[in-house]
Nucleic acid binder design. Structure first.
Lengths: 341, 341
DNA sequence: CCTGCCGATGTAAAGGTTTTCATCATTTGT
DNA sequence: ACAAATGATGAAAACCTTTACATCGGCAGG
């Protein structure tokens, strides 16, 4: 427990017979110090087991080399894979990654801002789709650190976004269904207010329009992106008696719900109904029938987002307002040719 | 970008007409300062928008109020839920959570130690099942910060562990199968070296012994805890032609593999074979048949682990070497009464 | 031989806290 | 009414770096 007093830069300096300034330079700007001295210093560092105290450095440099990641739900499967990418890239560049689980609770969001305002983090990655509660009001806007949004764009403010091309992905997905001969394709959505939902629905509409198909509003149902919501939506379709031959779901969880509902009604999938998801979450391949879906390049999203943020931190203005990566069509067994009905 | 010079404690002091010492006390030990002054200080804090600079504080206090979490794979579904618990508890006590994804790479493990040695983190949570590579050698042992192991005990060292009671859970699981009339129960294991595997297999053996059943070594197969490994193990059983009526799998992923293999062979589950998992990962309920399994109280594990670590940080010796939480039997549809064969 | 420059190093300030110790005013005990 | 104790506050040191500026010796150019 009782940290046996760590070696400081002074100890190293004393041992090497130089001043602490020289030690600091030997570490941070090796070219600026003579070869011989540099060797003595490295030797002394090794002997003392010195590590530079990050707190003192951060205090002096006014930067912590930490990135704060704010996510509504750290347990979300979409999160963890992007996180790996974020973390990998950050670590590669000598940055650490701090996580904050907000649970969409405004007070928790505000709470995490202390990391920013107390200099404990230099930049911010937002999974939440909105600026932390408490920012952007009053004049404090200027205090915002560099921010990159991921997973879900921040609609209000001028925040660069890195993520999948939702519109394009949804269009490809819908076109895949159309290419299988489906003419009545339902869209089971997320909360209508959310940007992700808007874009994916837009892609769906565009694909339909592109094929010259009319839009049946009874085939569009909102939800909340959960398995249960998918189940409920499918049931609603049966009640309304306006059935599609294929379901395009805003995400895999919803698609799972639809599949569960259809299985429960003893339909034979994919012969009688096709179901397509979006995201390719890890268990998409283990449902029965395994889910045809659009795969998000989550690891790369994380890397790209962190890359962008670190560039911004280095002072470069964000090169682009958003980086959109292509979703990939993953064909499994939940989509089949439309049976002639 | 250009941080408009944040307010410091001096600004507050000046505005309140007191010394910085008093401001510091008003913040940290409010009782030690007169009511009137305290009010003036809080007023001044509000007016200046002051936040205490965490770096300066950490430097002075020699503690960062950060916890480093080292995990081999942040994407692991088991991880994220425990993480939520860890994070919640930490945040509640004013601690931040730093994550490190080691991918079981020794050099990355060593790399993350800089957070410890540079005072950027006060304590360590280990998911890895072993001390970070580079510790415990030479005399540096003493530099170890308070550590708590989670998910997987650290076998070598004297590190407190918080997790599920694997032995007891496995015993309960196996007894459940026995109670359904099964007499030939297979155990599909993880890598034999791993502690988790040892304990769960021990629980299995104990249950069998308790029921006076003989142990058929052909019914015990090692694996590596993946879906594929479960599939392979089930296939192997058919090749060996020593079939059980029920499979107890070391974890849900393995169980999923077994189910996939049996489904592929067109068996009718659970009528012809029962399958039981362990962990209750999020998609256990969405396989068909849905998986009967033992649920780990992951959120509580996280909370308990963090609680223990923070106590240790506060100077209290760890109350117990390990905290074992009970796994809960979740009955779904993959286990049925043994058909008389 | 002198001036000016350059490269290597040292001195000291600054970064923003917490905390020990001293100071001072006030209250308590006798 | 005086000594002692108590309570509130302030001054200054300490935490460990980085870096602007000063210093110093040597070397090239005149």
């Amino acid at each position: 427990m009782q940290h046996q007093k760590l070696a400081t830069i002074e100890d190293v300096a004393a041992l090497a017979g130089v001043s602490i300034a020289t030690v600091s330079r030997a570490i941070n700007e090796p070219t600026k110090v003579a070869d011989a001295t540099r060797r003595r210093v490295t030797e002394a560092i090794a002997r003392t087991g010195y590590t530079t105290n990050a707190m003192a450095r951060s205090l002096r440099m006014r930067r912590s080399n930490m990135i704060l990641i704010l996510a509504p739900d750290v347990g979300d499967p979409n999160f963890s894979n992007i996180l790996v990418g974020l973390e990998t890239e950050a670590s590669k560049r000598g940055y650490g990654v701090l996580i904050g689980n907000t649970q969409n609770d405004p007070s928790r969001e505000t709470d995490y801002l202390r990391f920013i305002s107390s200099n404990q983090a230099d930049g911010l990655i937002l999974f939440t789709g909105h600026l932390p509660y408490g920012y952007g009001q009053d004049g404090s806007e200027t205090r915002l650190p560099p921010i990159v949004a991921v997973n879900e764009p921040v609609s209000a403010a001028n925040v660069p976004f890195v993520g999948v091309d939702n519109f394009e992905g949804a269009r490809i997905a819908t076109e895949h269904l159309l290419s299988q001969g489906h003419r009545r394709v339902a869209f089971i959505g997320h909360a209508p207010g959310r940007e992700i939902n808007r874009l994916r629905e837009e892609g769906y509409r565009t694909a339909l329009a592109g094929a010259g198909l009319p839009l049946d509003p009874r085939l569009i149902i909102d939800g909340d992106g959960t398995i249960e919501s998918g189940r409920a939506a499918a049931e609603l379709m049966f009640v309304r008696d306006a059935l599609p031959t294929a379901f395009f779901c805003v995400n895999d969880a919803t698609a799972l719900g639809v599949i569960i509902a259809l299985n429960a009604r003893r339909y034979d999938l994919p012969r009688q109904f096709s179901v397509m998801g979006f995201d390719d979450i890890s268990f998409a391949s283990f449902v029965s029938p395994s889910l045809t879906t659009m795969k998000q390049p989550r690891h790369r999203i994380g890397e790209a987002a962190m890359e962008l943020l670190l560039e911004m931190l280095a002072g470069e203005p964000p090169r682009e307002r958003q980086v959109l990566l292509r979703a990939e069509l993953i064909v499994r067994n939940s989509v089949a040719r439309a049976s002639g009905l």
